[in-house]
Computed example of a mutant assay.
Amino acid sequence: MSERMILNRIKKLMELEEQMKSLQQQADKLKEEIKADMEVKKQEEIKAGNHVVRFKTIVTNRLDSKALQSSLPDVYKQFVKQTESRRFTVA
């Protein structure tokens, strides 16, 4: 692929990412409006047509790896798992 072709693809990619960002902001705004309405009505679930919208509190338990590493470093080292990934960026 020539440099010109890559530049054209990068330009198109950046345009599409900007459009996605704009659409995501619009979607987030609509979600916030729906959530605000549900909070005002004190509802965790609403039905609208064929859709069911839920906005519930979920409690999860997660391991605080930094606290474990600082208080029990040997145990942390015993269970830590290294992973590998690749990152694509355009600057």
Rank of each mutant, 00 (worst) to 15 (best):
K31C: 06
Q19F: 02
V75A: 05
V75E: 08
E18I: 00
L72M: 12
L72P: 04
T60C: 07
A36Q: 11
E15D: 08
M20E: 14
L30H: 11
E39A: 13
I6T: 12
E17V: 12
Q19I: 12
V75I: 13
V52H: 01
K66A: 08
P73F: 00
E84S: 11
L7Y: 03
K29E: 12
F88Q: 04
Q19C: 09
M1W: 10
Q43H: 01
G49F: 00
V59K: 15
T57D: 07
K12C: 05
Q25F: 11
M5W: 10
Q26T: 14
S22Q: 06
E15Q: 13
M14L: 14
L63V: 13
D37F: 12
V75F: 10
L30W: 05
T83Y: 06
K66V: 04
R4P: 02
E15G: 03
S85M: 11
R4E: 12
S65M: 07
E39Y: 14
A67W: 03
D74R: 08
A67Y: 08
I6S: 03
K56A: 03
R9I: 07
M20G: 01
N8D: 12
T57L: 00
Q78N: 00
K31T: 12
I58N: 08
Q26H: 12
N50F: 11
A36H: 15
